[in-house]
């Protein structure tokens, strides 16, 4: 088990290396001149030359990659031409915002999706089943940004219950920075008003992002639960008097989780990669907005940085999912 874990972690290194090389080459092959964009239309040739040297763009490509790679390991992820700040610092600012959104969306999807899947499997073809299936179909079919717009219209413009956009009121002070997750920081510093504000701002974008994974998790869970309910051991458990609640939420749940777990793992990357739309609609200062801006200004380093971070999170998630398989299915052996 420990050996398996170490080997899997070691395998991450060549994967990330390859990815960084690929990204670097693609970014450099793209047409366009970031220095020209950063320096502005009236820049003198001397200024452009100076900026090129400052960003290391006057060196040969292999040399630039080597400089970048050694920097990556040391926490120096290059500099953004646009924000004029180190990419690593930018990432540390924007990543928690995006992670908070993604994790909130996943929590909503899992906490609602799994019990709903179990219950609709038990009461299949009942009222609950039809209602949730219809909503789920809509949830999968409707684009996130459109749902976001509908939510804004309903809860912010008409009802006025929730703030329209943003992560925190512009005039307010966010909770003291510890993790960068406003909700967690608010709890840590005991700032309950801050927690309320952070949650109010989080609610709509998180829900808009959660509907599609929620619908998929629910349908997956429903299908695998129906299958598990037909197994012989469920009959034995019933025949020996165990309560239906114990059978469903303990014995059936664990067996039905394996396939749902795969879906949840895949959704982590789907959500991370897809935050840009929701972040744009809700003006959420996260990785998606940062990456979009970087792409539009042909700012190489942030694009590479964002992609590397998302890839890393994805690879770690996949490792976690593989380890969790062993928890839900004792027949899985790591070797």
């Amino acid at each position: 088990m420990l050996f398996y874990f170490i080997r899997r972690v070691a395998m991450l290194v060549p994967m990330l290396l390859g990815l960084s090389l690929l990204l670097f080459v693609v970014a450099r092959l793209l047409p366009g001149d970031p220095v020209g964009l950063a320096a502005g239309p009236n820049a003198t040739p001397e200024l452009i030359e100076r900026l090129r040297a400052e960003f290391g763009l006057d060196q040969s490509l292999p040399m630039q990659y080597w400089t970048y790679l050694t920097g990556l390991v040391q926490g120096d992820w290059g500099q953004s031409v646009f924000t004029r700040r180190p990419v690593f610092e930018d990432l540390m600012t924007y990543l928690p915002a995006t992670l908070e959104l993604v994790i909130a969306a996943l929590v909503i999807a899992i906490v609602l999706g799994i019990p709903l899947g179990l219950l609709t499997a038990v009461y299949r073809n009942g009222v609950l089943d039809y209602v949730t299936r219809t909503v789920a179909l809509g949830g999968i079919a409707m684009p996130r940004f459109f749902l976001g717009l509908l939510l804004q219209l309903g809860f912010a413009a008409w009802l006025g219950w929730l703030p329209l956009a943003g992560r925190f009121p512009l005039i307010g002070f966010p909770p003291e920075h510890v993790t960068g997750f406003y909700t967690v920081d608010a709890v840590l510093s005991g700032d309950w008003e801050g927690l309320r504000l952070a949650l109010a701002h989080l609610a709509m974008p998180a829900f808009a992002m959660s509907l599609s994974p929620l619908a998929t998790i629910m349908r997956m869970m429903r299908a695998s639960t129906i299958e598990v309910l037909q197994q012989d051991y469920v009959l034995t458990e019933r025949a020996l008097g165990l309560s239906s609640r114990l059978i469903l939420f303990k014995y059936v749940l664990k067996n039905a989780m394996t396939s749902t777990l795969t879906i949840i793992g895949l959704y982590v990357s789907w959500l991370l990669g897809g935050t840009v739309l929701v972040e744009t609609v809700f003006d959420w200062p996260g990785l998606g907005l940062y990456a979009t801006q970087a792409i539009l200004t042909q700012d190489f380093m942030p694009v590479i940085g964002v992609t590397m971070v998302i890839a890393m999170i994805y690879l770690v998630t996949m490792l976690l999912v593989d380890l969790l398989y062993g928890v839900f299915n004792p027949k899985v052996r790591y070797s």
Binding site: Y233, R238, A239, L240, L242, Y251, N255
Partner: peptide
């Protein structure tokens, strides 16, 4: 019925490989 099952009435089924829950 549930009070009787497992307490007053015991049951055994055919295939031992499928009648034990594999995840526990």
């Amino acid at each position: 019925m549930r009070r009787l099952r497992g307490r007053r009435i015991g049951m055994i089924f055919q295939d031992p490989t499928t009648n034990l829950n594999p995840a526990f």
